[in-house]
Nucleic acid binder design. Structure first.
Length: 270
DNA sequence: ATAATAACCTGAGGGC
DNA sequence: TGCCCTCAGGTTATTA
């Protein structure tokens, strides 16, 4: 489900609601998602929320002893609901706060995960290998050039690899490659310096637009208050294989890369 | 070492 | 209406 913009929008919505609030207890309705729920989190009582932040597609809720690290996978949702709200079929975890509000994690497909990052400890292995944030100066055409040298896989597979750069999922990778006029099938190392500059700019632009529009919204993604995001309706090519290219009107093709389908224009994208 | 594939799950939508 | 098939925003372990 969510790519970077969805998590950023969620962070920005939750921060003013939760920072300074006190977590009363944590209630799990099953033992795990992709990983077991961390005992350190389950045992938390009367802990104040100090920060809410994002790393890639992970949402971090900071407490005095460490952070809950939440990944929504493909179908996860986090919603702030009244604590008495009846639990639904796929609601798996509640963070119960003072003020009768509960941060509730729902995830039908259960590809999501919840981890614990101790305050004084090495970075969690799931976070340690992550590449740079795309909306920082660290993610540059020069950096991409260094990382993609010798890589023969398709450029789309490379930019969706969280070791290279975090937060770029199938929708934004597809849209950014179209905007940069680069074929998703191009060998990563074959991009010219100019193309790398176009690609970095296109990724940044797509992600920023996604944030501005409140995130993409397919079946599962919703805001903390339950409303829908608007990026997908602005998509130029995602999900539109067979339909006319918005630029040249020739039909868009589909490419299956790194296990994901994506539309692209064989005429405009080289 | 690098890259493709399989796996983890449920639900929605299309075709018949 | 309902059954069967395919596909879905992500990551990681396994295979080649």
């Amino acid at each position: 489900m969510p790519e970077l913009p969805e998590i950023q929008v969620l962070r920005d919505e939750l921060a003013p609601q939760l920072i300074g609030r006190t977590l009363r207890k944590v209630v799990a309705f099953r033992p795990d998602l992709r990983d077991p729920f961390p005992p350190e989190l389950l045992a938390l009582r009367n802990a104040q929320v100090l920060s809410i932040s994002r790393r890639g597609k992970y949402l971090l809720v900071g407490f005095p002893t460490g952070s809950a690290v939440i990944h929504l996978g493909m179908s996860g949702q986090l919603r702030l609901v009244p604590s008495k709200t009846v639990r639904g079929t796929h609601d798996h975890l509640d963070l119960v706060f003072d003020g009768s509000q509960t941060l509730r994690l729902r995830d039908p497909r259960r590809f999501g995960t919840v981890l614990w990052q101790p305050l004084d400890g090495p970075l969690h292995p799931r976070l340690a290998h992550l590449g740079p944030e795309p909306l920082t100066e660290e993610f540059s055409a020069r950096y991409l050039g260094a990382r993609l040298a010798k890589q023969r896989r398709p450029i789309k597979a490379a930019i969706m690899d969280t070791d290279i750069v975090v937060g770029v999922g199938n929708i934004y990778a597809t849209e950014a490659l179209f905007a940069a006029r680069i074929s998703p099938l191009r060998e990563a190392a074959s991009l010219t310096a100019l193309e790398r500059r176009r690609l970095v700019a296109a990724i940044v632009q797509a992600l920023q637009q996604g944030i501005a529009l409140g995130g993409s919204s397919m079946r599962d993604y919703i805001h903390a208050d339950g409303s829908l995001g608007g990026f997908l309706s602005q998509a130029k090519v995602y999900g539109q294989a067979g339909l006319p290219c918005p630029r040249c009107k020739r039909p868009l093709a589909n490419a299956f890369i790194a296990g994901r389908n994506g539309a692209w224009c064989p005429h405009c994208q080289r």
